[in-house]
């Protein structure tokens, strides 16, 4: 997918409001079912009837969604709508939050993600994650990338490890910038470089799915553009779910877009459809900037 040209489309294409009444959207509209195409044939991840609770509060309400192989799915929606919570269900990062409870069926290649006999350690090796704020470990650049392969015993010899580190850094588009200073601390890199280092760290354990939680929100436009290019390249080998607040970014990098609202999944469609011809009034209101 071309990365930059949809920029204009993302901003200008949304359909004109047809009537004046539509200008005031009732944002409390009950969403009963998801419109569009939440399911696909060749699904890497299948999620059915997901409910997430934080103590008594329900954060996610009966969400069903498929994420296809080698597909980039963008999740958009106003703050607090549950996109990040939903994303963190997929590699069970919600387990670390006290009082968080997940219900529903999630499968990765038809194997359950939640279940008494599932070990989260190999699961998280298969489903990597990149966070909102770059979080390199306070170690050298090399050690940052080598961390995952080491703990999972992927590389037994130093040469193998070197190769994995170089490959990961190359694929993250960081190799040329850091190859002469691999022994320097990762925290000394610039914000954009740190985030690419985190992506390199995530792909070093050869995951099948990469989850990205607003990976560019702390970065400047140039660094953002690099990461977006990178996401597009990574799609060849990985399945990617990305949460973003930037609709232009969703339009640029994703094939399908899911719109969340107050814990409900409102609409899932081809990215182009969502941004040019949204089917739900809430989606339309959000992408035309009437709230959110």
């Amino acid at each position: 997918m071309n990365t930059m040209t949809l920029d204009a489309a993302g901003q200008t294409a949304p359909a004109q409001p047809e009537s004046v009444e539509k200008a005031t959207v009732d944002t409390d509209t009950r969403v009963t079912e998801t419109v569009g195409q939440p399911f696909c044939d060749d699904a890497k991840l299948r999620m059915r009837g997901i409910n997430v609770f934080y103590g008594e509060t329900q954060a996610i309400n009966d969400v069903s969604l498929d994420i296809g192989r080698n597909e980039v799915v963008a999740m958009i929606g106003p703050s607090g709508c549950g996109k990040s919570t939903f994303l963190r269900c997929i590699n069970r990062m919600n387990d670390t939050i006290e009082g968080c409870r997940v219900e529903g069926d999630l499968t990765l290649d038809d194997e359950p993600i939640y279940g008494p006999r599932v070990d989260v350690v190999p699961l998280r090796a298969r489903v990597g994650m990149v966070f909102q704020k770059p979080n390199p470990f306070p170690k050298s650049i090399y050690e940052n990338v080598a961390y995952g392969p080491k703990i999972h015993g992927i590389a037994s010899r130093r040469a193998e490890l070197d190769e994995i580190v170089e490959n990961s850094l190359r694929r993250a588009g960081l190799w040329n910038e850091v190859k002469d200073r691999l022994d320097q601390p990762g925290t000394g890199l610039s914000g954009g470089q740190q985030q690419r280092l985190c992506i390199a760290r995530a792909i070093a354990v050869s995951p099948e799915v990469i989850l990205m939680d607003e990976p560019c929100s702390a970065l400047d436009p140039i660094a953002t553009a690099r990461i977006e290019e990178l996401i597009d390249e990574l799609r060849e080998n990985y399945t990617i779910a990305i949460v973003t607040h930037s609709m232009q970014q969703a339009a640029r990098v994703s094939q399908r877009t899911a719109y969340f609202h107050l814990g409900h999944l409102v609409e899932v469609n081809d990215t182009e459809t969502v941004f040019t011809n949204p089917q739900h009034e809430l989606t339309e209101a959000y992408i035309t900037g009437r709230f959110g």
Binding site: M93, F131, I151, C198
Partner: peptide
């Protein structure tokens, strides 16, 4: 965020503590 990063790579809790938090 450092703990999340380590856990997200599939570290166990004790690996996270030993290799990331303590250093």
């Amino acid at each position: 965020s450092l703990r999340d990063g380590a856990l997200g790579l599939g570290s166990t809790h004790s690996e996270t503590v030993r290799k990331v938090v303590i250093p």
